[in-house]
Structures are given as C-alpha cells and as structure tokens.
C-alpha cells in the first residue's frame, strides 16, 4: 500500500519534471540577471535621490524605498512583486496541470479506475506540485546566495530565507485556491485564471489601498499584506505570517478533496 501512495506522488512528479526544471531555470536566471547589476547601483545616489522625490506612499506601494541599499534593491527588483507572482504562476500551473488539465483531457481516467480513492489521486498530485515548488524555491535560494557572494551584495541570510519562504508560501496559498477550484470544477482556464488573477488582485489591494488613509487599513485583508507588510528583507518575520498563509492553504486543500469526492469525473 505504501508503494501505491508513493506512486501517487512520484508518478505526477515524473510528468512534471520538465516543468519544474524550466521554472527553476527561469527563476535562477531572473535572480542572477538582476543581482549581477548590483555593482552598478551599489553606492549610486542618483537613482535613490530621484526616487526620493516621489511621495512616500508611492515608494511604499511599489517597494521602492531604500533602493540603493541591498535589501531595497532586492525588494524593488525581485521580492516585492516579480518573484511572488512567479511563485504563484509556478504553483498554479503545476497544480492546475496535474489536476484540472489532466482530468479535462481525460488523462486521469485510467488512474481513477484503479483501486485508489480519487481524493488520494488528487492529494498525491497536490503534494507533487508542492515538492515541485520546493525544488524551484531551493534553486532560487541557492542562486541568490551564490550571486550575492559573487557580486558582493550583503544581505543577511536570516532575512533572505524568510523572504524567499514567504514568496513560496504565497505560491502555496494561491496554488491551494487553484487546487480547490480544480477539485470543484476541472476547467483548466478557470483554474489558472482564478489562481493568478486573485494573486494580482491581492497585490493591487495592498499597493492601491496605501494611497488612501480610508482604504489603507483594509489592505490587511490581503494575503499579500500578511506575507510582506512586515518587510521581511529588513525585519524579523513574525511566525503568524507563515501560519496565515499555511492554515488557509490546508483548509482549501481539504475543501477541494471533499468536493472532488462528490462530483463526476470529467470525460476526456
């Protein structure tokens, strides 16, 4: 029975390995391509001075504060928007591809006709996507650490690690939404759209609401705020921020599994 459970995870991982490799390579290239320009900006006051002419709310909204510092440079170029969105895209495409896309194409038919519960098949695919995301996270972290050393970008690992983890957890959160949608309604385009668009919306809530004193408190409802409002590249991250992303993710997966157990499997 253990080999059966193992297969439910390793089978999807085998079919995802190219996607995982491409996402890892893409993330690594993005980080390397960004960090390599740090020596040009290091100590340069020109851009910092220019940015300082912008209103503080604009700087905060787009993560541009302290652009000339190592943390500010990484935040503005990578960890404020780009990397979290890419993690969301990675998670949503991996989990959506293994669930909604495979089911809608009829590729799950033979698996679900075996002596396994359909919840187990879906959970196996969610775990495989999670492992895939972990590999991408690790690739990004390793390249970030190596490149930091190469170009002499001093960033404390105690801040870098939580930042990268929070980005990955944001991916897990929206991947879980995509998973729940796929479990309820296996339409690949809907799954991808809901997962990614909700992530963009939650970022926009944080960014746009910061311009209004009336709306600003409501930005705390956004998962983006739960993850990044504490400025994890410069400040110690509170544990609740991880929990705020992980606990709903687990709940979403459980809701999804309950949904898939009680519906028809789509024909190919």
């Amino acid at each position: 029975m253990n080999s059966q459970r193992f297969e439910l995870v390793t089978g999807p991982l085998r079919s995802m390995r190219r996607a995982i490799a491409w996402w890892s390579a893409g993330m690594a290239a993005l980080v390397a391509g960004t960090v390599i320009f740090w020596p040009i900006f290091k100590g340069s006051t020109g851009i910092t001075d220019a940015l300082n002419h912008l209103p503080p709310t604009v700087l905060t909204a787009f993560g541009l504060q302290d652009f000339g510092s190592p943390a500010g440079y990484l935040r503005a170029n990578l960890y404020e928007i780009v990397v979290p969105i890419l993690f969301v895209a990675t998670a949503v495409t991996l989990v959506g591809g293994q669930t909604a896309s495979d089911e809608a194409a009829g590729r799950l038919e033979l698996y679900l006709a075996q002596p396994v519960r359909r919840e187990a098949v879906y959970l196996g695919r969610a775990i495989a996507a999670l492992i895939g995301l972990a590999v991408v996270t690790l690739a990004l972290l390793v390249v970030q650490i190596v490149m930091d050393a190469v170009v002499d970008l001093p960033i404390d690992l105690g801040f870098l690690l939580p930042t990268v983890l929070l980005c990955a957890f944001v991916g897990v959160f929206y991947g879980s939404i995509a998973f729940a949608v796929a479990c309820a309604r296996p339409r690949p385009s809907v799954v991808m759209a809901v997962g990614i668009e909700l992530a963009v919306l939650s970022y926009l809530i944080v960014a746009m609401f910061s311009f209004s004193t009336v709306l600003q408190p409501w930005s705390q409802l956004s998962p983006w705020s739960w993850a990044f409002a504490g400025d994890p590249l410069q400040t110690a991250t509170d544990l609740w921020r991880y929990g705020a992303l992980v606990v709903p993710s687990i709940a979403l997966v459980l809701i999804g599994l309950r949904a898939v157990a009680h519906r028809d499997i789509a024909a190919g």
Binding site: A105, R107, E109, L110, A113, Q114, R117
Partner: peptide
Amino acid sequence: VAIRRRIAYLPGELRLP
C-alpha cells in the same frame, strides 16, 4: 475501491500521458 481492485477498465476515449 474494493470493487476496482477486482475489475479492469478500458475507456472508450483513451488519453495517455
């Protein structure tokens, strides 16, 4: 699950990885 352990199924619309 107990039933599917004892049956073999070949679908009409065949989609393989």
